[in-house]
Design a binder for these strands. Structure first.
Lengths: 218, 218
DNA sequence: GTGCTTATGTGAATTCGTTTACAATCAAGG
DNA sequence: CCTTGATTGTAAACGAATTCACATAAGCAC
């Protein structure tokens, strides 16, 4: 769907889920209208950037008034395809993988970890927070059965590339990669890296060299 | 230190730990020299970008030859201040916090989680992978005693801002924030957000709207 | 209605980051 | 010591993202 809508800048696209979440909470608290200035304060993005982001989708607000919360909510739900649930596989049920399976943040939104895979026989066959853990050898069959096209990769980094190759073979379309490995995949597969030790290292570098903070992740 | 070195672009600064890690592994494998093209292949960053990044620090390589691995290693160790160990506190020992304490990735590098805090009395007083867990009420004393100026924040989001306020009061300089809350802190404190559910959401958005991947976290 | 206030939407300017493209330089081999 | 081949370092071009700044339009009060 929607590949031929005018392309939204990537930086904008990355902020959409952030907007959506805050709009949800506004709606839940009963607020009827909101200005770009209020949004800015809450999500810590410049108000002009917010207006520009919204404007890529047309005129969502009204001059002198702001944005109608219900309207925004409906709009973003549609745009972010929140009515369809996206099934996610978690590959590698170690410390980090376990946290993701248990952590409730994935049960909000429209994403759901429906299956975990691991090579450790003591984990295979168990259920964690309702999620069945299968052996990696069963990946092909289960991935195809459940039409899963997103995976969270939390295996030891030595296995990351080969597991990614398998995932690609089984038709994966997106990988959220928590391993330090830089994966090589066909360019039809989207990979986002979250490299925790690098995030920590770079935080420390910024602390030491940019004593007064600006930009970057807020 | 070094606040008055010429400022490195933020995008470059975020890549430095990545370079450092790969250079370490080159060194470990006994390689003597490396070109920007090889580095590019490994870390998946354009070779011109790598050369440009390096050039902010002066001429680290030799034309027609490449870079000397030992030299790069020494240079980056110094630049990234890898000889000093940075003590890190972990606040909020839930699923995710537990994973971080146990996960060995923090034991590499120069960073070390030396203490955890939680409000749950059943956790207080225990030790996880050698890290003592204290009650949040003891934060002030322990933070100051151990001269900790970086914290990983993995508390429920409702408490995030108030815990951050406390951390600021106790002299924190950097926070790696895993909660969805957008923290308000003085601009002398550096905050990096890692918002896991937003990362997943935005991956899915990109998959659906940018079928062929370019840029963004590769 | 009329006028005042407010806040959007966007053209233009700016800042930031990446990439191209190539002159300068060095190693290595004969 | 000269030539060849390789690879850096960077100027210039390009592209992406942010921010400024304001004309425009809507709500609201009276």
């Amino acid at each position: 769907m929607s590949q031929n809508e005018p392309k939204i800048p990537q930086a904008t696209a990355k902020r959409l889920p952030l907007y959506y979440r805050f709009i949800q909470s506004l709606h839940a608290s009963g607020k009827q209208r909101v200005s770009s200035a209020e949004l800015s304060e809450a999500v810590k993005v410049d108000s002009a950037t917010i207006r520009r982001d919204f404007s890529y989708f047309g005129a969502l607000g009204k001059k002198g008034y702001g944005y109608n919360v219900q309207y925004l909510l409906d709009f973003f739900r549609k745009t972010l395809n929140q009515d369809e649930i996206t099934n996610v596989a978690l590959v590698g049920v170690g410390h980090l993988g376990t946290a993701f399976v248990n952590y409730n943040f994935l049960k909000n939104n429209n994403t759901h970890i429906v299956v975990g895979f691991d090579a450790d026989e003591t984990k295979v066959g168990t259920t964690m927070s309702g999620v069945p853990i299968h052996h990696v050898d069963e990946m092909e069959q289960i991935m195809k059965q459940n039409k899963i096209d997103v995976a969270i990769l939390t295996v030891p980094s030595a296995y990351a590339q080969s597991v990614a190759d398998d995932l690609v073979r089984y038709g994966i379309k997106g990988i959220l990669n928590f391993t330090p490995a830089r994966l090589t995949v066909p360019d039809t597969v989207r990979v986002h890296h979250i490299d925790l030790s690098i995030e920590l290292q770079s935080l420390i570098y910024f602390m030491q060299h940019y004593p007064t903070a600006e930009g970057v992740h807020q």
